[in-house]
C-alpha cells in the first residue's frame, strides 16, 4: 500500500527576521548608558576646570588610555570567547626589554618595532599553547606566564634601564598625525574599526560568540575551537607588543617594571565596556566608550590635582556601580 505524500494546502507560516522595537532596545542598551556617563563626565570636567577644553590638553589626555585600549580590543575578544590573559602587562615589559637590548646592538627603528610586535606575538603564542594546546585553564596559565615574562625581563635588565632609542622611534609615542591628533589615537581608531569588523562582521567573530556561550556545542557544530582560542591569544600578545612599542617610545626608556599592573586596568576597561566576564557577550563600541570614560576621569581628576590613589578609588567605585546598577534595578522591579 503506497500513499502519495499528503498535499500541503496551507502556506508555511511566516516568521519575521527581527521583531520591531529595535530602536527602543538600542536606547536601553549598555552602550547608551556608557555614552551618557561619558557625556556627564565630559560636561562635569568642562565646568570644573577651565583648562579641560583646550585641544592640546585633551590630546595629551588620550595617552591615559590609548595603549591600554589597544590591548583591551583583543582582550575583549578573548573574554567574549570565555578566556582571559593576565600576562599582558608582563608581555609589555618583555617586549620593551627585547627592544632595549636590540637597541644596544644597534638595531634601527623598523627593526625595533618588528621586535616589539614579534616578542608580543610569541608570548601570546606561548599562552595559546598552554591553554589551547595543553588545556590549562587560562587564568592559571597566564598568572604563570605573568611571573615568567616579567621575571625574564628582570633577569635581562636587572635594576638598570635601557635608553638611547633613535629619534625616529619617538614618533610612535610622541608624534602627531594631524593637528592635535596623536599617532597613538589614530592607530587606536584604525584598530578599533578593524576589531569592530572582525568581531561583529566576520565568521571568526561569530564563532567567538558561539564558543563563549557554549564551547561544547560550538565544537559539535564543526567550529575549530582550539584554533580560534590559539589565534585569540596570539592577537592579544600582538596587541600587547604594539602597545609596548608605543609606551616605550613615549617614555623613551625601558625599565623592567614597565606596564606593571596594566592587565587589571585593561580588564576593567573590557568589563566596564559591557563584556560579560563569563564570556558570550559584549561589543567593541562598549569597550571603546569604557576606555574613553576611564581616560576622561583620570584626566579630569588630574586637572583638579586629585592624587592618583583617589583616582583609583574613583575608578573602582565607578566600575562596581555601573556593573551593579542593572542588577539592582532588576531586583527592585521584582
Amino acid at each position: 500500500m503506497t500513499m502519495a505524500p499528503p498535499p500541503r494546502p496551507i502556506p508555511p507560516r511566516h516568521i519575521p527576521d527581527r521583531l520591531n522595537g529595535s530602536f527602543l532596545r538600542r536606547l536601553k542598551s549598555w552602550e547608551t548608558l556608557l555614552l551618557a556617563v561619558a557625556a556627564a563626565i565630559f560636561t562635569f570636567n568642562a565646568l570644573a576646570s577651565p583648562y579641560f577644553l583646550d585641544p592640546w590638553n585633551l590630546s595629551d589626555a588620550t595617552f591615559n588610555f590609548t595603549e591600554k585600549a589597544m590591548i583591551a580590543l583583543a582582550m575583549a575578544l578573548l573574554i567574549i570567547a570565555g578566556e582571559i590573559d593576565l600576562s599582558v602587562g608582563a608581555i609589555i615589559a618583555l617586549a620593551s626589554v627585547a627592544m632595549g637590548a636590540a637597541r644596544q646592538m644597534g638595531v634601527e627603528t623598523t627593526g625595533l618595532v618588528l621586535i616589539g610586535a614579534g616578542v608580543g606575538l610569541a608570548c601570546g603564542a606561548f599562552n595559546g599553547f598552554l591553554v589551547a594546546g595543553l588545556g590549562l585553564p587560562s587564568i592559571v596559565a597566564t598568572i604563570g606566564t605573568m611571573s615568567l615574562f616579567r621575571g625574564i625581563a628582570y633577569i635581562i635588565l636587572g635594576d638598570g634601564a635601557y635608553g638611547g632609542y633613535p629619534a625616529s622611534f619617538a614618533w610612535f609615542g610622541q608624534g602627531y598625525v594631524w593637528g592635535a591628533i596623536t599617532f597613538e589615537l589614530a592607530l587606536l581608531a584604525v584598530l578599533a574599526v578593524v576589531y569592530g569588523v572582525l568581531l561583529h562582521g566576520t565568521n571568526f567573530g561569530r564563532r567567538i560568540y558561539a564558543i563563549g556561550n557554549n564551547a561544547t556545542a560550538a565544537a559539535f557544530s564543526g567550529v575549530r575551537v582550539r584554533r580560534i582560542r590559539m589565534t585569540l591569544f596570539m592577537l592579544t600578545g600582538l596587541m600587547a607588543g604594539i602597545a609596548s612599542v608605543c609606551l616605550t617610545s613615549r617614555l623613551g626608556s625601558t625599565r623592567p617594571s614597565i606596564g606593571m599592573g596594566m592587565e587589571l586596568e585593561v580588564i576593567t576597561m573590557v568589563v566596564l565596556g559591557g563584556v560579560a566576564i563569563t564570556g558570550g557577550s559584549g561589543t567593541i563600541l562598549g569597550v571603546m566608550l569604557a576606555a574613553l570614560i576611564m581616560g576622561l576621569i583620570t584626566f579630569g581628576l588630574g586637572l583638579l590635582n586629585v592624587p592618583g590613589v583617589v583616582m583609583s578609588i574613583f575608578v573602582g567605585i565607578l566600575l562596581i556601580s555601573v556593573i551593579a546598577l542593572p542588577k539592582l534595578l532588576e531586583k527592585m522591579r521584582r
Binding site: 561569530r206 560568540y209 558561539a210 556561550n213 557554549n214 559539535f220 557544530s221 564543526g222 567550529v223 557577550s281
Partner: peptide, 18 residues
C-alpha cells in the same frame, strides 16, 4: 542543551554556524 545548540544565540546564528 549542552552539545546541540548555543541556546543564548539567536535562531539564525545557530542555524548558520556550520
Amino acid at each position: 542543551g549542552l552539545q546541540g545548540a548555543v541556546r543564548a544565540l539567536p535562531i539564525f546564528q545557530n542555524l548558520t554556524l556550520p
